[in-house]
Simulated scan of single mutants.
Amino acid sequence: MLTLGGIAFDDAAALLRSYGLALQRVADDAPIPGSYWGDCEAGIIGTTVYARDDTPVHSLLHEACHLIVLPPERREWVHTDATDSVAEEDAVCVLQALLGDALPGVGRDRVLADMDAWGYTFRLGSARDYVERDADAAWAWLRAHGLVDGQGRLVPPPA
């Protein structure tokens, strides 16, 4: 499982910053603020994503995507659990794979494999099959919200 300690922190922080988010490194022996799952899983509070060096990159991206899909005015109210919307959760699962391609040394393939290793479950049996063959509604949601274009490529965040 690829962790934050296995990539350049500054690259991850810059990616999140481009979406108006902050990445806060948490000390190795400290609990992660705003972590829904606990242990080493990333946390979110407001516009900040919290992670330790042992936090899986897919977890960091997943929690960041929960904030990215929200309108900026809703982000400030988030603490630990961003949504109970199935449509948003599905969109987040696709978006986190796309953001993997935007992180040097990560890539979509690694994110999808780590999602499977972590235990995400999808109807077709794998994260890749979900994203490529079963996520039509999630892709439509991302297009409708201006996060991907008609070819399924990330739309750059507003400057």
Rank of each mutant, 00 (worst) to 15 (best):
R128S: 08
L147H: 05
R110H: 02
L60P: 07
I44L: 10
L112R: 10
P33R: 01
D136N: 01
A64S: 12
P158R: 14
G119T: 10
L99K: 09
R153D: 07
G119M: 09
G20A: 04
E73Q: 15
L154C: 11
R74W: 10
G125Q: 05
R153E: 10
P157F: 10
L15C: 03
P158Q: 11
R108S: 11
D134F: 07
Y19W: 15
P156W: 09
L16T: 10
W118D: 13
A117V: 03
G150R: 11
T48R: 15
H145E: 08
A97N: 04
E73H: 14
V131G: 06
R74S: 12
G107D: 08
L103F: 06
V155A: 03
Y120E: 04
R25F: 04
E88M: 06
S126K: 10
L112Q: 14
G150W: 00
Y120V: 06
D29H: 13
L103I: 11
F9D: 14
G125R: 04
T55K: 10
E132Q: 11
A22Q: 13
R75D: 12
Y36R: 15
V94L: 05
A97C: 15
V111L: 07
Y50S: 10
L103G: 05
Y130M: 04
V106I: 02
R74D: 14
A12F: 06
H62Q: 08
L23R: 06
T80V: 15
C40I: 06
L147K: 08
A135K: 00
D149F: 06
E132L: 06
Y120N: 04
F9G: 06
A12K: 08
V106G: 04
D81A: 07
Y19I: 09
A27T: 07
A159M: 04
D10Y: 01
S85D: 15
D10M: 06
L103W: 06
R123L: 06
A117P: 01
F122G: 00
A27H: 10
D134H: 09
P72E: 12
S85M: 03
E63N: 08
Y19C: 12
S18G: 09
G20Y: 02
P71I: 02
L95N: 09
Y130P: 02
Y130K: 03
T48N: 08
A51Q: 09
E132F: 05
D136R: 07
W139A: 00
A27P: 07
S35Q: 09
D29W: 05
D90K: 07
G46L: 03
P31T: 12
L2Y: 01
L124G: 05
W37K: 14
D149H: 09
V131F: 03
A42D: 02
